[in-house]
């Protein structure tokens, strides 16, 4: 898996007083990968990102990005890594294009190329028509796009986006994420996203890491995460029939006889079948053979939502136990 790590965190720790914001975090992200850092507010996501950029000093451990130690050579890292903060601000007295060109100049783009490059980047993120407006008149979604343009004009090797979808409307989010994914695939960019929005991460991430209270609880792609968490019953198939079952016991017996089925629950016209492998066609066939009128089949996959809730439940339980112990 980790053949070519471009981001490598090694037991990264950051303490604020006695509070551990990030606790011995070790993580590897490969080149060209889209990695989602998932966690509730205050989990230490932003702190981790700032340490990767050399904007915060780790208490111990180290962050290597593109083979550069972020604490020792922060400017070297920042030359290769683009960062979009969670609430990116722009100079309101300047136009969007001027804002972009300023960033371009700071990154040493020669004066003769800068205008054309800024124009192209604005077109790329879909702000071509609005580039001469002052950023004060920009909506939240447009600002996020401009923030993305900010990253792209620098042609970074790694993009780090901190809560990039915060405050954008649903349609805007989909567009934004599609754009990121597209760019990542086209230019083989490594993207690190942080979010607490699970559905969005599900849409674009290759791999996610779940991050709670400064610790990485688990990481992997969605399937392995689901497997790790839910063990046997990682697939649930819900079948709806038109009329309530007349002989639920018989159907249940037959379903349980299928290979891999672990649990069956029947509620009027809805049958939930939990199984360890995906055997949806067999289940449907069984219903049809029994002469039942199937109106809907729904394969319930475990989304990040479920994964997250599972973790969250565990954590709150632990909390409650701890409090009781105290």
């Amino acid at each position: 898996m980790t053949t070519n790590p471009i981001i490598e965190l090694d037991r990264l720790t950051k303490n604020y007083g006695t509070k551990k914001a990030v606790d011995h975090l070790s993580l590897k992200v490969n080149k060209g990968e889209i990695f989602g850092l998932l966690g509730p507010n205050g989990a230490g996501k932003t702190t981790t990102i700032l340490m990767m950029l050399g904007l915060a000093e780790p208490t111990s451990g180290q962050a290597m990005v593109c083979g550069i130690n972020a604490t020792r050579n922060p400017v070297g890292v920042r030359r290769k890594v683009g960062y979009l903060p969670d609430s990116a601000g722009f100079y309101d007295n300047l136009t969007a294009l001027d804002n972009l060109m300023y960033i371009g100049r700071l990154n040493g783009i020669p004066e003769k190329d800068i205008r054309s490059r800024a124009h192209n980047t604005m077109e790329m993120v879909g702000l071509g028509a609005e580039m001469h407006k002052k950023t004060a008149a920009y909506s939240r979604g447009m600002k996020q796009r401009l923030g993305l343009a900010d990253l792209l004009i620098r042609e970074p090797e790694v993009m780090i986006l901190d809560e990039p979808t915060l405050g954008i409307d649903p349609a805007g989010i989909r567009e934004f994420l599609t754009l990121i994914r597209q760019l990542s695939r086209q230019q083989e960019l490594t993207v690190l996203l942080s979010s607490h929005h699970l559905h969005q991460m599900q849409q674009i991430c290759d791999r996610v890491g779940i991050f709670v209270e400064g610790k990485l609880l688990t990481e992997g792609n969605l399937e392995t995460l689901a497997g790790k968490l839910f063990g046997e019953d990682s697939y649930v198939v819900q079948v709806s029939v038109r009329t309530p079952l007349t002989a639920p016991g018989e159907i249940e017996r037959q379903l349980l006889a299928l290979p891999g089925v672990t649990k069956v629950s029947i509620m009027e016209g809805n049958v939930d079948v939990s199984c360890s492998t995906d055997i949806t066609p067999d289940i449907v066939r069984l219903f049809v053979q029994n002469g039942l009128n199937v109106t809907g089949v729904h394969k319930k996959e475990y989304g990040l939502d479920e994964i997250y809730h599972r973790f969250f439940e565990k954590n709150t339980k632990k909390h409650i136990l701890n409090e009781q112990a105290v």
């Binding site: 903060p85 100079y91 900010d150």
Partner: peptide
């Protein structure tokens, strides 16, 4: 305004 963190994320 949030420009500081954006600015310092540049190689400066």
């Amino acid at each position: 305004n949030g420009t500081l963190v954006r600015l310092l994320a540049q190689p400066v």
